[in-house]
Every structure is written in C-alpha cells, then in structure tokens.
C-alpha cells in the first residue's frame, strides 16, 4: 500500500514538474518576446522612450467588425498594446501579433504613430524555412506611412516576392488587421 502511495506520489510530482517546466518555458518565451518588442520600439521611437504594455479585451462585435474590414481574425480575445512615451507625451504604439506561414507562426510587430500611421513593421521571429524575404528592408518599407485608410491588398498594394507568397499574404493581412484594430480601440489606448 505504501508502495502504491509512493508511486502515486512519484507520478503526481513528475506531472507537476512537467507542468511547471512547460509554464516556465512558455513564460521565458513571453519574456524574450517582450524584451524584443521593447528593443524594436526603441529603434523606432528613440532610445529614451519608456515602453509600457497594457492588455485590451476585444468584444465579439469588435472582433466581427475587425474581420469584416481586414479579412483576418485575431487568434485570441485579448491583445497586448505597447505605449511609447517620452516624458508625458505618447509618441506611438506597438502591436505584436502571430500569423501562420506555411507551417510555422511568424511573430511581428507593427509600430504606429499617434494617429495610426505605420512607422515600421518588424519581424521579431521568423521560423519558416522559405519566405524569409519578408524580413528584408526592401519588403518592409512598403508598409511605412500606411494607415487604416489604405486597403493593403497583397500583390497589389503590397508587392509580392517570388517564393514568399504565403508569408507576404499572411503578414499583409495581419498588418491590415492591426491598423483596423487601432482605429477601433484608439480612444481606449489614449486613456492613461
């Protein structure tokens, strides 16, 4: 009996250990991503900016509207927005998002000025074997200066790169979704 209890204890401890490890690994990835996002935003808005983040919950109606306007869905109801402040004034915002490439997720950041104009799009993690051309300056510069009034049709408004079509489409639709989301939640973002 003691032996059985002992083995149960062992199984339970192992499972707790596995669970904790998984949580820690996921936590570490989040931390790395957050520091990468902050680093990227400092490049866009200057080293002296203070970067803070806040979570926003999207309502069902908001998600529906975002899909109608951008033709793509957020993967979760909660999104994280970063604010970049210099002293007391907000210089801009950052949104981090994942879109699916051919098999792997692409993690990217969109930096927006107050008013919603794109400062830059930065790819934080590219995990696909093909299509890495979307991380190149020559591709990313196409997004600069665009805002939610731009249609951003992949292949027309944002040029395709041969061999990278899936990644080009994925990130372009994602950026359009972030621009649309900014328009919907900008009042909430501006609240201190």
């Amino acid at each position: 009996m003691l032996l059985i209890h002992g083995s149960r204890f062992f199984v339970l401890s192992t499972l707790y250990f596995v669970l904790c490890t998984l949580t820690i690994v996921e936590g570490t990835a989040q931390t790395i991503l957050q520091s990468k996002a902050a680093e990227s935003l400092k490049k866009l808005f200057g080293d002296s900016v203070a970067v803070s983040s806040a979570k926003f919950v999207l309502s069902g109606d908001e998600k529906k509207l975002i899909f109608e306007r951008s033709k793509s869905h957020w993967l979760s109801d909660t999104i994280v927005a970063y604010s970049c402040k210099n002293k007391n004034s907000v210089l801009g915002y950052g949104f981090v998002d994942d879109v699916k490439g051919k098999v792997q997720f692409i993690t990217y950041l969109v930096g927006l000025k107050q008013g919603g104009e794109i400062v830059d799009v930065d790819v934080l993690a590219y995990r696909e074997a093909y299509g890495g051309e979307i991380t190149y300056e020559t591709f990313r510069k196409q997004f600069r200066g665009k805002d939610s009034n731009d249609k951003l049709v992949p292949g027309r408004d944002i040029k395709n790169i041969s061999g990278a079509t899936i990644s080009v489409r994925a990130i372009t639709l994602g950026v359009k979704r972030i621009l649309t989301t900014y328009e919907l939640i900008k009042e909430r973002l501006e609240k201190p």
Partner: peptide, 29 residues
C-alpha cells in the same frame, strides 16, 4: 483520497496535453 488523486492526474494530463498541443500543429494543403 484515491479518487482525488485520479482526478488530479486527469486534470494535470489535460492541462499538460493542451500546453503541448499549443506548440504542435499540422497543416494540410
């Protein structure tokens, strides 16, 4: 007590498998 143990094992397995599944994904095309 053993029922609690069994239930907690099931719960832990479910949580762990969800966490693992969130990292693995299959694509068909």
């Amino acid at each position: 007590r053993s029922l609690i143990h069994i239930l907690s094992i099931i719960f832990l397995l479910a949580v762990a498998s969800t966490a693992l599944r969130s990292q693995e994904a299959t694509t068909v095309g």
